[in-house]
Design a protein around this nucleic acid. Structure first.
Lengths: 250, 250
DNA sequence: TGAATACGTTTTGTATACAGTAACCGAGGG
DNA sequence: CCCTCGGTTACTGTATACAAAACGTATTCA
C-alpha cells in the first residue's frame, strides 16, 4: 500500500527477510528466542504473508530453527559449530580451487583475482595495519573468495558455498577487529595472503591437489583466527554475529 | 477443511511440498517449465499459501528456480552438474568421516554401521544379484551413509550433507537398476562395499586422512556408476529423476 | 497444599480476496 | 508481410479474515 518508506520497488518478502536478518545479527532477537510473527509484522512493516515467507527462507538459510509446536526460534551455535562451519567452507572452497585448476582457467579470468591480490598486498604493506585498512581487507578478501568460487564453473558447488557462507561467522576474515588485536591479526593476514598467492599459482599451473590443499590450510588458519577473536572479546561490539554463540561456553 | 483424504494430521505445507516434489521427480512437471500456483493448488489439494511455502522450500532445496519476473520453474541440470553434485557430496562425506575418526567413536556407535555392512555383504554374495536384492541394497546403502554422516557429530556438516543429498541424483547407488546392467553394477557395488569396510576400519583406528580419502574415492566410483547408468538408458523408466537432465546433451 | 482439569487468551496455520504487473493476443500502420 | 502499439487476461505478490491448536491461568478436588 505504498508505505512512506523509500523501499518501494523491492518486494515485501525481501524487505522482511533483510530486516529480520538484521535483527538477528544485531542481537535484537536473542538466540533461542521464539520469533513472534505479529511482532515481526510490526517491526518490518510487511504483512504476515511475506513475513512468513521470510521466516521460511531464514530457516533454510540456517539462522532460524523450526519449533515442533509451531513457529520459529533464533538458532544458537556452539563454538564447535562455528569452527566446523569454517572448516566446511574451506573444504568446499578447496574443491572449487581444484575444479578450477583441473578444468583450466584463462589468464584473462585470473586477472581480477590478481588485482585483488595486489590491492591486499598494498594494504598489508603498512605496519601496523590501520583499522580502516583492515575493513578494506575484509571486503577485498570476500571478493577474492567469491571470484575464486566462480572459477570452479560448477553451479551446484557455487550454490553450496553460498549456503555455507550465509552463516556470518563462516567468513572468518572479519573476526579480529579490535584495536589491541590488530598486530597479531596482521601476522595471520600475511600468511593468509601467501595462501591466496599459492592457490592462484596452483590454478595457473593446473595443480589441482595443491590448490585444494592450500585452501584447506587456509581454513585451518581461519579457525586459528577465530580462536584469537574469541580470546580478545572486545570484537563483540563490532561483530555481533558472535552473539549467536551459546553462552554455555562461558 | 477436513478433506476426504487420509492426510489429516499432516500440515498442508508439507503435503504440498511432497506432492510437488513427486510431480517434479516423476516428470509430470518438465524441467524449464513454469509452475502455475493455481494448477498446483488443484493437484495438491492445499490452498495457495501452503503451496507458496512449499515452492519456496523446494527452491531452497534446489529443485526449483525463481523466475525474475515472478514465480518458479523446474530446474534443469547438465550432466556435469550431476557429477559435480556427486563429487560434492563425496567431499562432504569425506569430511564427516574424518571428523568421526579424529573425534573418536565408541564401539557401540559403530555397531549399526557394521550390521549394515553385514547385511549388504549377504546381498552381494548372490551372483548375479537379483533386482529385488538390488533395491534392498539401495536402502541399506542410504542407511549406511546416513549413519556415517551422523558419526561426525557436527550439526552444520550434517545439515549441509542433507542439503547436498536432497538432489535425487546425488545419491548414486540407485542409478543402475536396469536388468541388463546388473552384472556390471554388481562389480561396482562390490568395490563400493570395500570402501565401506575401509572407512569403518579407518574410523576405528582414528585414521582421519585415510577415512576421508576413501570416501572421496567412493564418490569417484559413484561418478563412474553414473556414467554407466547414462549409457544403459533403460533405467530412465525406473529413476525419472534423471529426466531433470538438460536435453542439450542428446 | 498440590495436582489436574477446564477455560480463556494468544499465536500459528490456512484460506481467500484484492491489487498490480507482466505476458499474450489482436488490430492497425508502415 | 512484419513490426508495433494497445487492450485484455491471467498470473503473481500482498493483505487480511478465519479456524484450530497450544499455552497459561485459575479453580476445584483429592
Amino acid at each position: 500500500m505504498a508505505e512512506r518508506e523509500a523501499d518501494r520497488s523491492v518486494s515485501q518478502t525481501v524487505k522482511a527477510q533483510l530486516a529480520l536478518r538484521d535483527q538477528i545479527l544485531s542481537g535484537t532477537l536473542r538466540p533461542g528466542e521464539r520469533i513472534s510473527e505479529l511482532q515481526a509484522v510490526e517491526t518490518t512493516g510487511a504483512s504476515r504473508t511475506p513475513v512468513r515467507m521470510a521466516l521460511v527462507r531464514l530457516e533454510e538459510e540456517g539462522l532460524l530453527e523450526a519449533i515442533p509446536s509451531g513457529g520459529f526460534m533464533v538458532k544458537a551455535f556452539s563454538e564447535r559449530d562455528i569452527s566446523d562451519s569454517i572448516e566446511l567452507r574451506g573444504t568446499l572452497e578447496g574443491l572449487a580451487a581444484r575444479f578450477a585448476a583441473e578444468r583450466g582457467v584463462s589468464a584473462r579470468e585470473l586477472e581480477p583475482l590478481k588485482e585483488c591480490l595486489a590491492a591486499i598486498d598494498e594494504l598489508l604493506a603498512q605496519v601496523p595495519i590501520s583499522i580502516d585498512a583492515f575493513s578494506s581487507y575484509v571486503s577485498l578478501n570476500a571478493r577474492f573468495h567469491a571470484l575464486l568460487t566462480e572459477l570452479s564453473r560448477s553451479p551446484p558447488l557455487i550454490r553450496q558455498i553460498d549456503r555455507a557462507s550465509a552463516l556470518p561467522f563462516a567468513s572468518p576474515s572479519g573476526f579480529v577487529m579490535a584495536q589491541s588485536a590488530l598486530p597479531e591479526a596482521q601476522q595471520i593476514l600475511i600468511i593468509a595472503q601467501e595462501h591466496h598467492r599459492v592457490v592462484i599459482d596452483a590454478i595457473e599451473n593446473r595443480e589441482g591437489a595443491r590448490a585444494e590443499a592450500v585452501m584447506r590450510e587456509h581454513a585451518r588458519l581461519a579457525v586459528r583466527n577465530l580462536r584469537l577473536a574469541l580470546r580478545n572479546r572486545t570484537h563483540l561490539d563490532l561483530l555481533p554475529a558472535l552473539a549467536l554463540i551459546k553462552t554455555a561456553t562461558d
